[in-house]
Amino acid sequence: MKELPLQVEVKSKKVFKVSNLTKTRKRSDYFWAYLMIAPTMLGLFIFYLWPIVQTFYFSFTEWGAFGQYEWTGLDNYKRMLEDTNLIKSFKNTGIYIIFTVPIGIFLSILVAVLLNQNIKGKSVYRTLYFLPVITMPAAIAMVWKWLYNSDFGLLNYLLSLFGIKGPQWASDPKIALYSIIVVGIWSGIGYNMVIFLSGLQGIPKTYYEAAEMDGAGPFRVFFTITMPLLSPVIFFVSIMSLIGAFQVFDLIFMMIGKSSTALENTQSIVYLFYQHAFVLNDKGYAAAIAVLLLIVILIITAIQMVLQKKWVHYD
C-alpha cells in the first residue's frame, strides 16, 4: 500500500538508507502477517497436513487391535487390484459424479439466472433454494428415506393414486443409486446457485444493454454474453462439486441400511473406506484407499486445469 511514496524516494540520493528501512519495515510486516495467520496455519498443519502424511505412511501397514501395526510394504496396494468391492465402489462413485455434477451445475445455473431476474418475492425463492444447504445431511437423508419408503412413503402413495405401484426406491439394487443421486442434486443446488448468482451480478449491465440495442434475443444473450463471462465461476463450481461428489458418504450411510442388498450397488469409495477403517478395523487398507482417492482427485483436477484454457474466459 505504501509503495508509492517509497518509489518516489528511490529517485533521490538516499537510496541505500531508504531501501534498508523498507526492508526492516517489510520484515516486520511479514512478521505480523505470519503471526496473524499462525493460529489457522497451525490448525491446518496439525489437523490436515500431518494426518495426510500419516495416512500415506499407514497405507503401507497392517493394523491389529488397539493401534498395533506393522510395515507390510506394498501389500495393501496389491490387494486393491483384486478387490472387486473397490472396483464396484469406483463404478458407483463414477455414476454418481456423472449424474450429479453436470445436472447439478445445469440446474443451479438455470435457477440462478431465473432468480437474477426482477421477479416478485425472489429473496423468498432464494432462501427456499438455499435451505437444503443449511440443513444437516442426516436430517435430509431421514426425510428422503421416508419419502422413498416403499410401503408408507409419500412418493409411492402419490403414485398409488394413479394406480401405479411404485418401486422400492431406496432398496432396489437397480434404482437405489439413482434415488441417492436425486437427493445429491437437490441438496447441492442451493450452494452452487449462490455462487452463480454472485457471478451473474458481476457481469456489467452495459454488455446486455449493447446486445439489446443490436437486437439479440434472450438465448443469444445467454450463450454469447452470460455463459462466457460466467465461465470462470462455472469452472470453480465444477471443480468443487466434482471433489465433493467424489467424497459422497453421508447420504449413502444414512439412507441405505446395512443389511440392504442395495448396498453393493450404492457404496462409494469413501463408504468403503469407512467400512474398512471403522467397522472391519482394517485401517492400513483403509488408508491405502484414501491415498488412491487422493491421487485420483488430483489427476482429475489437474486435467480440468489443463482443459479450462479451452473454454474458460478471463478478462
Binding site: 432398496s171 442388498t261 442395495a262
Partner: peptide, 8 residues
C-alpha cells in the same frame, strides 16, 4: 421381505 424390513 428383507428390503421392506430395512426400510421399516
Amino acid at each position: 421381505t428383507l428390503a421392506q424390513m430395512t426400510e421399516t
